[in-house]
């Protein structure tokens, strides 16, 4: 029986087939999934901010795109997975309040860009994405198949 493991903001969790990793109600945050199809293991990080080097970071390191990707690589390595076998997917980064004139939020777009850049730098292959737009998303990641199921409420 497959278990569903919820991953909250600033968290990272790993799972083995047939378990599922889920992140609910993602707006401007980004869920990054790593999957090793050979080993059928995966990890999901629920990221909130693009860069830990700006300002004075507080709270969980997984909140930040750069640190979260480092951690994903480490956790996958612990499960026996090599970088070149990893397939990454990116979900989220919506703009929930696109009409705000005063100091537009735009964090969704910036988060997605930061994740993509970091993955490229670390030589991780990105095989899919569902990003941007103005709707929230829930994502379910099956470590049995590596597929993501995305729900919106609009």
């Amino acid at each position: 029986m497959a278990e569903e493991i919820e991953v909250n903001i600033g968290e990272l969790k790993v799972a083995k087939a047939p378990d599922k990793l889920v992140a609910l109600g993602i707006g401007s945050c980004v869920a990054v999934t790593f999957y090793d199809p050979g080993l059928k293991v995966g990890a999901l990080a629920h990221i909130m901010l693009p860069d830990s080097t700006k300002g004075n970071p507080i709270g969980s390191p997984i909140k930040y795109a750069d640190l979260a990707v480092d951690e994903l690589i480490k956790e996958m390595a612990k499960m026996g997975s090599k970088k070149k076998g990893i397939e990454a997917k990116i979900v989220g980064g919506a703009d929930m309040f696109p009409h705000i004139k005063h100091a537009p939020l735009e964090v969704g777009r910036i988060n997605v860009e930061a994740v993509k850049e970091k993955l490229k730098k670390d030589g991780i292959r990105t095989v899919g994405e569902a990003v941007g737009g103005n709707a929230g998303r829930s994502v379910e990641f099956s470590t049995a198949t590596g597929s993501l199921t995305i729900r919106t409420k609009l």
């Binding site: 609910l24 109600g25 993602i26 707006g27 401007s28 919506a94 703009d95 929230g136 829930s138």
Partner: peptide
């Protein structure tokens, strides 16, 4: 939308 998404940005 979902409150998680509304709140996170």
């Amino acid at each position: 939308d979902m409150v998680g998404a509304v709140v996170d940005s």
